[in-house]
């Protein structure tokens, strides 16, 4: 190996600074959420305590954040499931040439670039004028899908652009039906990125603000609740909540990474289980 050039060390320093820029503020509020009971929103720390975490459990101090958290969690799971199924189906669809595929593709791209507040406003107006009740599980659910589905689709494009079609052809030559090919050949191969799509589907929904703003009705999701707090809470309780929900996001990411890792381990140990369960 050739020795590292000078530019390598400059770029490493740059990258380290970038990571500090990414994580520094989050770590800072992590520390400040342990502020003593008399402490404020900035340093210095006035003692160390878990006072502000306890305050999160006192209903009157912060409103219905646990209800909001439950709703966000359920909504995230709903969006995740639909995003995975619909993006994989659409990814398979785009490998075939069908009439209007170009239009549908650009519609998906449009869905990514159209400002969130327009989707929020439009969906809200449709439900209002159509006399349908606005609810996080219906209108907000649909509005969030316009953000997560195109993401899932783009990942599927990236996956299938690199997919070796010879695996499929081999399966077909061995007499596998179209469904068997998908179930036992394609799906196991694309499993890791599909798990990635699931993680994105859940996280983007769990943290979504703009698309939920006008579409969630009378029950807030967690990001809406947190934003409400920014306007009237001026103590570190908001840091405690931020720290908890960020830790929760980290835990979710860890779970998904664990699944991908276990999948790779199983694959290396025993090969794929393709064909064993026919």
């Amino acid at each position: 190996m050739e020795p590292r050039s000078k530019s390598f060390w400059w770029l490493t320093a740059f990258f380290a600074l970038f990571v500090l820029f990414l994580y520094g503020p989050t770590v800072t509020i992590g520390i400040l959420s342990f502020q003593g009971p008399d402490g404020g929103l900035t340093f210095p720390m006035r003692g160390v305590s878990t006072h502000w975490f306890h305050a999160l459990f006192a209903q009157q101090a912060v409103g219905d954040i646990w209800g909001a958290w439950r709703r966000s969690f359920v909504l995230g799971l709903m969006v995740m499931a639909v995003t995975v199924v619909v993006s994989v189906m659409a990814g398979l669809a785009f490998r075939k040439h069908f009439v209007g595929s170009g239009v549908l593709f650009y519609l998906a791209i449009a869905s990514l670039v159209i400002p969130s507040i327009l989707v929020s406003l439009g969906v809200g107006l449709i439900f209002n004028e159509g006399g349908l009740p606005i609810h996080w599980a219906t209108s907000a659910f649909g509005a969030q899908l316009t953000w997560t589905l195109p993401f899932g689709l783009l990942v599927m494009f990236a996956v299938f652009n690199r997919f070796d079609k010879r695996y499929e052809e081999a399966a077909r030559d061995q007499g596998a039906s179209a469904w068997q090919t998908v179930r036992h050949v394609i799906l196991p191969i694309i499993a890791p990125p599909v798990i990635g799509v699931a993680l994105f589907g859940f996280s983007l929904s769990y943290d979504e603000f703009a698309r939920t703003l006008l579409t969630s009705g009378s029950y807030n999701t967690l990001p809406l609740e947190i934003f409400g707090m920014t306007t009237n809470v001026t103590n570190p309780v908001i840091y405690a909540l931020g720290t908890l929900t960020t830790l929760f996001s980290f835990a979710i990411i860890a779970v998904f990474l664990g699944v991908v890792w276990a999948l790779g381990l199983r694959r290396r140990r025993g090969g794929s289980d393709a064909g064993k369960s026919v």
Binding site: F94, K96, F98, S101, L107, G122, T146
Partner: peptide, 22 residues
Amino acid sequence: GWLLASPLALVLGAFLVLPIGM
């Protein structure tokens, strides 16, 4: 192809095209 793409088309139709039209 259409059958597989129809869920995507339905969601985008209902929650993107219609709202923007509205």
